[in-house]
Nucleic acid binder design. Sequence first.
DNA 1: CTGGCTCCTCAGCGTCCTCTCATCTGGCCC
DNA 2: GGGCCAGATGAGAGGACGCTGAGGAGCCAG
Lengths: 221, 221
Amino acid sequence: MLVVEDSQKMSNLLRRGLEEEGYAVDVAASGEDAIWMAEEYPVDAILLDVMLPDLDGFEVCRQIRSAGNWAPVLMLTARDAVPDRVGGLDAGADDYLTKPFAFTELTARIRALLRRGPSERPTVLRVDDLSLDPATRIVTRAGQTVDLTARELALLEYFMRHPGEVLSRMQLIEHVWDFAYEGGSNIVDVYVKYLREKVDRPFGLSSLETVRGAGYRLRVG
Amino acid sequence: MLVVEDSQKMSNLLRRGLEEEGYAVDVAASGEDAIWMAEEYPVDAILLDVMLPDLDGFEVCRQIRSAGNWAPVLMLTARDAVPDRVGGLDAGADDYLTKPFAFTELTARIRALLRRGPSERPTVLRVDDLSLDPATRIVTRAGQTVDLTARELALLEYFMRHPGEVLSRMQLIEHVWDFAYEGGSNIVDVYVKYLREKVDRPFGLSSLETVRGAGYRLRVG
DNA sequence: CTGGCTCCTCAGCGTCCTCTCATCTGGCCC
DNA sequence: GGGCCAGATGAGAGGACGCTGAGGAGCCAG
């Protein structure tokens, strides 16, 4: 198990506790170290603090994922940081735990993750002939690359992580925009239109469906 | 669904969000109101803030329970209040969520609670060859997808959650339309007709039965 | 500073949904 | 069989909802 934590005190505590539970523990104190160690050593699970001196936890997680490592990641977030949870899950974390936490809760979640095993996810998201690589941020449809802005890409990525599901405006705003939905804005509508113009129209398709009164859905098949 | 929350801003937010998810929402701003409304209106689930101007959430929950109401209760607690969790569960809550929370987390837990319901229910509703997935809002009959509007879907879902039962117009209006039945409207009749045209007629069936003088029934088997 | 780009707001417009109303149909009781 | 009443149906008004084009604010590079 790889523990990524910059506070010496905390990491010692975790190491001791986890070793007592029978885990073999390596510690990385920075994001760079963590990425390197995840690459170099066989790791069954990763315990990842969001706050790190160099990169933040999301970035670390994304890079580990894009290196093809799908070991379960349990992310430790600051206590009120709701966007963190969301960001963490989108970056490829498998679970999160807010500080402060009880050690028994930590071990329970670790056991759950290990039971589940590595999350079998491909690096590149694919829905029909549409593909999106979160690592390189390259999007293609029918083999042709599509240029998207940051926001458009984030939105499409969220759609592709939930293919076929109806996603409400509120859900989309919370995940893609990171703020609470207060109504009165049609920003989701606008960005769906942008996406349609880049991802659908040039190919004569309409994979982004409107579900009246509910939200939008990326059609699959 | 009954939302008990004294902050106007919060309750508006919740109402709007939940309605967008397809729930019919009533709001109570105090403990007294909540107890009264839980008694007076048919409620499938209760979202209950712990901090209220008059009684606290635990007391409200206890009283609702002792009135014989066993609708699932999801309690909203202050952030670190571990004792709250315990108290809440003791008082008869089914689940708790600490503020602040992501709206998607809220809806996930609500779905889980409703799924549990009085008896174990699967995520996808099935009655014979008719299936309805509340998450994706996809309805199929005999493997063929059926397009429904928001209202039609809500009505069909209610029928499918009570297969074989005779449902009165009053019951249907209260659950699907979220307002008190005042007679004089045949809106249920109209929507049953719409459903029949989409769900029955194309398949040469008549699963939505009229029970003269009583209401309607979704025939099973 | 200027131009280009991205992000977002806003208002107008068209479409589809929702619901009402008046009329029609068919079952049931006499 | 006739009358009555519950329910079915068709037409259509009104409005909610989503789409779209225009444009302003912020940002960055040149």
